[in-house]
């Protein structure tokens, strides 16, 4: 199953888990599974209307899903999905 890498700022919502195994054949399904497993992460990823928040960047392998098929981007078994956060510390 695909593995979703959770960035540090959001791990507080995944019981500290850095990698969450999710089910699904595309990003949308994988994110649904993630938010089912960890419901408190949902408002940080999605707007009230259910759209992915603009500052949320998801990469499948090396590629931003915005450059692929968005949340319909297909994912393969074992593929790494990375959630890339905005961080500002310096």
């Amino acid at each position: 199953m695909p593995v979703l890498r959770i960035p540090t700022p959001l791990r507080v919502y995944t019981n500290g888990q850095s990698d969450v195994t999710v089910s699904g054949s595309n990003i949308s399904e994988a994110l649904s599974d993630l938010t089912n497993q960890y419901p408190t992460i949902k408002p940080h990823l999605f707007t009230d209307g259910g759209d992915l928040r603009p500052f949320v960047n998801l990469f499948v392998g090396e590629h931003n899903i915005k450059d692929l098929q968005g949340v319909n981007t297909p994912i393969k078994d074992g593929e790494k999905i990375m959630l890339i956060p905005s961080i500002a510390g310096g």
Binding site: P7, T8, P9, I84, P85, I87, A88, G89, G90
Partner: peptide, 10 residues
């Protein structure tokens, strides 16, 4: 560009 938080860096 570089950015950091806790254990993460970009």
């Amino acid at each position: 560009y570089g950015s950091i938080f806790r254990f993460d860096g970009q």
